[in-house]
Design a protein around this nucleic acid. Structure first.
Lengths: 122, 122
DNA sequence: TTCATATGTCACCAAAAGGTGACATATAAG
DNA sequence: CTTATATGTCACCTTTTGGTGACATATGAA
């Protein structure tokens, strides 16, 4: 997966309305643009079409024109590819860091022992 | 994980330079801003600081000021959370769709059989 | 043809992202 | 003190994003 493709997928997913569109397409595979628009009370058709264009650019949505309608489909492949990448790329890092940081991850960073900076209190 | 947090994480990851910064921090944990900047020939310090602000906003980077330096750390927790979410949310969908679409995923969408539209010529 | 529907395209606008240089502040070193 | 280093902050600029309405096109129906 090339960097540009990753950019497109992450950027597409970095939007609540777009993630919501994916949910809609998961629930109603093959529905058309106006049907998707119905789910949004605060957004018009053109905005929905732009979001769909972003999603199609990331290959997260596939469309096919049937008559005057455009049928829309969620494509899970890019998500799966990132998922695969993370399992391989990050698992080693997680293992190493988790062993080093134990369960302190969410709480505080682990300062490097460059200089002695007073004792830890508690 | 709230929608806003997901937005922040995905938006932060939707940038090649930012993903590169994370790689740098994985390789050199605790290094400072200027050190990170050295890796970029086409970007200045202020731009790097803005990227770091985005990454910190997504909690993908944690920093700690030590003396006049700012030590930077990669935090894998948000990635892990999305990873976890995907394993649960998408696995069922993948199983169902993969069974239905078989290996045709990358190639073509699967049109719903709403109207009979001539025979497939292949 | 005529009318309704579904989508595509265009110009336009406001806000956010992504970059810069100039300057201020804080710390280390002499 | 002075000087160098590391970072923070500010105004400014350009490009992209995200939204709109008006209008054009394509299809379905009568």
């Amino acid at each position: 997966m090339k960097p540009d493709e990753m950019d497109a997928v992450f950027a597409a997913l970095a939007s609540e309305p777009r993630r919501r569109i994916l949910d809609i397409l998961k629930k109603e595979p093959g529905c058309n643009v106006n049907r998707v628009t119905e789910f949004f009370g605060d957004m018009g058709r053109i905005a929905v079409m732009k979001h769909l264009a972003v999603l199609e650019g990331a290959n997260l949505v596939i469309s096919e024109k049937v008559g005057r309608e455009r049928q829309l489909w969620f494509n899970p492949v890019p998500v799966h590819m990132i998922y695969d990448r993370w399992t391989t790329e990050f698992s080693a890092y997680w293992a190493g860091q988790l062993a080093r940081m134990k369960y302190r991850l969410e709480n505080a960073p682990v300062p490097i022992d460059r200089k002695k900076r007073g004792g830890s209190r508690g």
